[in-house]
Amino acid sequence: MSLLKISDRGIYCEQADVYIDPWKPVERALITHAHADHSRKGHQKYMSHHDSVPIIKHRLGGVEIQGVEYGEQTKINGVTFSFHPAGHIIGSAQIRAEYKGEIAVASGDYKTENDGISGEIEAVKCHTFITESTFGLPVFRWQNQNLVYEEINQWWRKNKSEGKLSVISAYSLGKAQRLIQNLDHNIATIYTHGAIEAINKLFRKHGYNLPDTVHLGGNGKLKEEEGGLVIAPPASIGTMWMKKYKTAQIASASGWMAMRGTRRRRGVDKGFVLSDHADWDGLNTIIKETEAENVVVTHGYTDIFARHLHEMGLNAYTAETEYTGETLEPEKTEEKTEDEAV
C-alpha cells in the first residue's frame, strides 16, 4: 500500500493521519503553497513553508499554522515529512514523506525555471511522485523567461512612447511578484492593484526585497501619458476600476497565451506566454530525475500525460482532485477576500 494516496478529501497519509493540500476540512493539513486551490480554509492545524505562513494567515484569517524551513524534518507518527523547493511561487514546496524506507512526494505546483524569487526547484528522489500536469501537452514549450521579460519591456516602452498606459493581468500571488522582480523599472513606474499590493506588503515585511511599486487604490490617480505599468489581478480587468483608464493597453501573462485560440478568446490586446508551471519538457525532466516508478497525475491534461508516462515505462495513473492549476478564470473566492483586505 502506498504511503500517500488520494482520498476524497485530499492527498492522505494514513500512517500519519495527515492530509496534504486537502480540499475538505481535516484535522491536520500540510500545505504545499498558498494558492487558493491548495490552501483552503477549515482545517484545524496547518503546516507550510514559513514564507507561505503570512499569506495563508492573510487569506484565511486566524488559523493555527506552523512554518518550517526547506529540508527541515518533522516526524508524525513515525512518518518523516519535509518540504522542498518547487520553484512555483514564493514559499512553494513539494512535500516529501518517508516511512520505513518508502518515499513519496507530492509536488503541489512547480516550475523548472528559477525566477529569482521562488527558489530553485529540487528534484526529490522517491518511489511515488504525485505530480501536476497543468501544461502536460507537448504544445507547451516555454521560451527562456528573459526573452519574455524583454518582450514585455518592449511592449511597455512602445505604449509609453505613444503616451499610453500599460496594464498586465497577472495572478496576485506569484505572477505579479515575478513580473515586479524581473521587469525593467527604468521604463516608468509600476503600479499595483490593491489585491497585489497587500501581498507585496506581506512579503516585504517578511524580508523579501521586492523592487518598489506604487499602490493604486480604489480612486487611484495616475497620469496615463506618463506610460506607467499597472499590474492587476484577472478579476479586475474589465471592471469599473479599469475602465476609467482610456488609453490602457491590456495584456495577459499566462501559459495559456501559447495557444492562439485562448489569446483571441481572452480579448486582450497582447498575450505573453509566461507561466509559473512547468512546461512539457520541465514536467518530463523533473519526473525523470525523481527516479519514481509510480507517478500519480492530479490536475491538468491528466489522461494524456499519464498515458505518455505509461509509455515511458512508468506506472502512471490519474487521480481526481480539486486542484485547478493555472486558469484564466478569476478565482472568485480568492479575489473577494483580497479585495476586502485592501
Binding site: 501537452l137 507537448p138 504544445v139 507547451f140 514549450r141 521560451q143 501559447a258 495557444m259 492562439r260 485560440g261 491534461y301 494524456i304 498515458r307 505518455h308 509509455e311
Partner: peptide, 29 residues
C-alpha cells in the same frame, strides 16, 4: 521532429484545434 509519438500529436491537435498551429507548437523552438 518534435520527438513525440503520433498519438500525442493527434491529442495535441485535437486540443489546439488547428493543424498549422499544432505543428508550430510541437516543433523545437
Amino acid at each position: 521532429h518534435g520527438s513525440i509519438k503520433t498519438w500525442l500529436f493527434e491529442e495535441s491537435y485535437h486540443i489546439v484545434g488547428d493543424l498549422a498551429e499544432t505543428i508550430a507548437l510541437v516543433l523545437p523552438q
